Computed example of a mutant assay.
Amino acid sequence: MALFLIGLIIFLASHSCRIFAESWRNQMIDRIGEVKWKGLYTIVSLIGFVIMVIGYGQARQSTVVLWQPNIALIYIALVLNLVAFIFLAGSSPSNNAIRLKLKHPMILGVKVWALAHLLSNGTLVNLILFGAFLIWAVLDFRSARKRPVHLPEQAQVSTKATVITIAAGVILWVVFIFGLHQYLIGVSPLAQLS
């Protein structure tokens, strides 16, 4: 569990500079340049992510079961994950209705994803993982709403871009639910339904 917690802290801390240390982040960018900052940020994030994934895999083997989710929560989680994938796809292109209306759909997608996984997973390690991501997403969304949103001037909703965005989210969800989740995580989201 310790390795998992270390990785989780590194990963979320690296993604929290704009929440808790915006002025320090800006000073660092001014001092070392944006390209070097993004490189450093990426390296630290990847290190945290790898440690978190390895630690999660280890912690999952001997975690404490806190509750057993009922079948209704599993179905709700599947639908919420569909919404999360559509929000994720909505972060680009910038002229789709989801991006223009919500401004920060990727962060909202993380919120919905974390909530869905909290509903459908009743173990301590999952409570820590998805609870931490949900708290982070709430704080990041609040912080992001205070910052200017960089969208093209006078951006107008493109119906084509919106349809493509929604279709991409649905396709990603189908691919993930019906195979990629099992391949990457080792657990099928549909296994709890049988």
Results as ranks from 00 to 15, higher is better:
residue 1 M to D: 08
residue 2 A to R: 11
residue 3 L to S: 01
residue 4 F to A: 02
residue 4 F to E: 04
residue 6 I to Y: 13
residue 8 L to G: 01
residue 8 L to A: 05
residue 9 I to D: 12
residue 12 L to N: 07
residue 14 S to Y: 09
residue 17 C to H: 15
residue 19 I to F: 09
residue 21 A to D: 09
residue 21 A to V: 03
residue 26 N to L: 14
residue 27 Q to D: 15
residue 30 D to E: 15
residue 31 R to W: 10
residue 34 E to W: 07
residue 35 V to W: 06
residue 37 W to D: 00
residue 39 G to K: 11
residue 41 Y to M: 06
residue 42 T to K: 07
residue 46 L to W: 12
residue 50 V to E: 13
residue 51 I to P: 07
residue 51 I to K: 05
residue 53 V to R: 03
residue 53 V to T: 13
residue 56 Y to L: 08
residue 57 G to D: 03
residue 57 G to P: 03
residue 57 G to H: 01
residue 66 L to R: 01
residue 66 L to D: 08
residue 67 W to L: 03
residue 67 W to R: 07
residue 69 P to K: 02
residue 70 N to D: 15
residue 71 I to V: 13
residue 71 I to E: 15
residue 71 I to N: 13
residue 72 A to I: 06
residue 73 L to G: 15
residue 75 Y to A: 07
residue 77 A to P: 02
residue 78 L to S: 10
residue 79 V to P: 11
residue 80 L to T: 01
residue 84 A to C: 04
residue 87 F to V: 00
residue 89 A to K: 02
residue 89 A to C: 07
residue 94 S to W: 05
residue 98 I to Q: 02
residue 101 K to Y: 13
residue 102 L to R: 02
residue 103 K to T: 07
residue 105 P to D: 05
residue 105 P to N: 04
residue 105 P to F: 00
residue 108 L to P: 01
residue 116 A to S: 11
residue 119 L to V: 09
residue 120 S to T: 02
residue 121 N to Y: 03
residue 121 N to V: 00
residue 121 N to H: 03
residue 122 G to R: 01
residue 122 G to P: 03
residue 123 T to P: 06
residue 123 T to F: 14
residue 127 L to W: 11
residue 132 A to I: 05
residue 132 A to S: 15
residue 139 L to T: 04
residue 140 D to A: 15
residue 143 S to R: 13
residue 143 S to D: 11
residue 144 A to H: 12
residue 148 P to K: 01
residue 149 V to G: 12
residue 150 H to F: 04
residue 151 L to A: 12
residue 154 Q to D: 15
residue 158 S to R: 00
residue 159 T to F: 01
residue 160 K to N: 10
residue 160 K to P: 02
residue 166 I to Y: 06
residue 167 A to E: 05
residue 168 A to K: 13
residue 169 G to N: 09
residue 172 L to F: 15
residue 172 L to D: 06
residue 174 V to L: 10
residue 179 G to V: 12
residue 184 L to K: 08
residue 187 V to P: 07
residue 187 V to Q: 08
residue 193 L to K: 10
